[in-house]
Design a protein around this nucleic acid. Structure first.
Lengths: 346, 346
DNA sequence: AAGTCCGTGGAAAGCGCTTTCCAACACGCT
DNA sequence: AGCGTGTTGGAAAGCGCTTTCCACGGACTT
């Protein structure tokens, strides 16, 4: 069944030229080939249905056309938006995207970078926040070092902690501005669905939010910070704890949109209305948000654009290793947040 | 900067064994190697930080570890859900997923399959509906034939039109059952946001819906079928046409969920309430649906599962070329559809 | 007329790995 | 002692391509 593939050698022979000449015609070599031979080679190649073997080319050239993309969960709109940006740039540069998903397992992350290294991927975009786990970070950093030592370029979308090019969203300042905006609406008691305690992006956003409250002379008591998974279901589950905590909060900030969406659903299940009984805000501005009712207030991040930026960092020819692209977040207050009217979450 | 990579030959030399022995130890060869040499090779490999060159292995073995995944738009929840299923299975089989996005351009689709073929990908999952464009289909079919002739396996998620293994959702019967369900709610006048006229999946769903109406003795006048893009914005834009058409429909069926979401937003913009003024239903049951208010009625497809099924089809050892896995759709009536109370879209 | 240079084609040496084939040796038999 | 048989190590031939290096002519100098 498996028909032998047409090789360059066959094309060369059939066209009556040397291997070298055939190669020069069929790839973008700088060397000139006379019009006559060129035509002949091109013709036979087409006639025989020649397709270069990418593995052989990669081996001979010592460089591949592969770009790695590592995300936690491709079904999460946050990551799929970034992925769309990365693939757009990579594909328009004639490269091929290799997708790896970690399921938020740091070991898997290291494993993926290793695999991509084995494939001699020319570049690598790692999306998704690091955690406070030092040993995991160290092992990832080692892999990344090996990857760059091999001539590959790496960019991260998240914290600039790994000595690579990085696209870093304004987690702190965005959350801070959001806090001020919510305070300006009249809220005085807040609760935060803070995600996992060891996730840096979650910590940054929490810290920024606290700072924003402090700007307004407000504070966030410890009991008002609920930890949970960084997912829609995490946000949903956290609401039970939130209500049990009897915080009296009139406004809930979830450190990302999917958590906020889960929380809104859970609040509804508990018979609470948003924003009449409690206001809710998220972070990221994932695309699905615009079809939510009430529309979710959030901090907008240009997700696809961030993916594009990361891809560009990693594909340009600049030789300036650790560059940082800061991306601003824009506070967008929508219908899910309103002037506090009720008594909040007693 | 680019440090030379450690090669098998170096490991072999350092360990004082032949290339062959080193190779046998460091990959899953069937050949035995004595415990002593084995240890020695493993030790030096670790010490030197040896990592096999995947391109070289692919070349020597004439087979790669790559699995292609072709989707229209990775940011669309429909595709990202399927992608999550495919990557899960592929990665658990130790394979590497190559992601290609077409942006719904048939030429790009062909191009991607070609690229994947050049990389000697061992398998390929193509998600996304075909169109009625015969010449595009033919060229894709040719590429696919070449791919399989080369020993690769291909599965499609959509219509079983290409002679490959296929996972086909119950578009017709799902839409038909949905139509009956909506008629049972009391609706008599319907409108359909039918997507692009040349997209097979859209046509199937429209046809199924009509059949379901016919079962109930109802029909769908031509003026009640609005065409538009198969996207959220397409659904949004179609609503203006829909309203202009003065169909008197009390229920709108959009042939996929993202269109239905766009339509709901547009209806709201026009001051129409769902479901009080008009009921809306979609198709697919993308994950984001459960956080919509009102919750969208739809036909549930197990999207991640479909991705997994496709991946399994393409990765098992069965030698039964064109198999078809039919996936049932389950009608899920939620809050976006109700007994018709108003006068509908006059 | 001799010397230079450039443009072009081909031979061949790799790239890093797998795998066939052969040699060597240790057994267990008759 | 002689002979299969089975096990293990190594030499070497590829896998399909790129690229260096050399050879050859013709066009130009001087």
């Amino acid at each position: 069944m498996t028909s032998r593939q047409v090789t360059l050698a066959e094309v060369a022979k059939e066209a009556g030229v040397s291997l070298a000449t055939a190669s020069r015609v069929l790839n973008g070599s700088t060397r000139q080939v006379s019009e006559e031979l060129r035509e002949r080679v091109l013709g036979t190649a087409r006639r025989l249905g020649y397709l270069p073997n990418a593995s052989a080319q990669a081996l001979a050239r010592n460089s591949s056309v592969l770009v790695g993309l590592v995300v936690h969960d491709i079904a999460d709109p946050y990551f799929s938006s970034i992925a769309a940006g990365v693939t757009r740039i990579a594909e328009s540069a004639g490269l091929v995207v290799v997708l790896g998903t970690t399921g938020r397992d740091p070991r898997r992350e290291v494993e993926l970078v290793n695999t991509l290294r084995a494939h001699r991927a020319r570049a690598l975009v790692i999306a998704g926040s690091r955690t406070t786990d030092r040993s995991a970070s160290r092992r990832l950093a080692e892999e990344i070092t090996a990857f760059t030592a091999q001539g590959g370029r790496v960019a991260c979308v998240s914290q600039a902690k790994l000595g690579t090019d990085t696209v870093v969203p304004a987690n702190r300042s965005g959350a801070r501005a959001l806090a001020r905006g919510l305070a300006a609406l009249g809220h005085r008691r807040f609760a935060v669905l803070a995600g996992p305690p060891d996730l840096l992006v979650a910590r940054d956003r929490l810290a920024g939010f606290k700072a924003g409250l402090a700007d307004e002379g407000l504070e966030l008591p410890d009991g008002c910070v609920i930890t949970s998974d960084f997912t829609r279901d995490g946000g949903h589950a956290a609401v039970a704890d939130l209500i049990a905590a009897r915080t009296g909060a009139t406004c809930v900030f979830a450190v990302n949109d999917v958590m906020a969406m889960g929380a809104m659903a859970a609040l509804r299940d508990h018979g609470l209305r948003v924003p009449e009984d409690v206001s809710v805000a998220g972070f990221d501005d994932i695309p699905t948000l615009r079809d939510l009712v009430p529309a979710l207030s959030t901090v907008r991040l240009p997700l696809e654009d961030m993916g594009e930026r990361a891809a560009r960092l990693v594909l340009d020819d600049v030789v300036a290793p650790p560059r940082t692209v800061r991306v601003a977040g824009e506070v967008v207050l929508r219908a899910s947040t309103a002037h506090p009217s009720g008594i909040g979450l007693r």
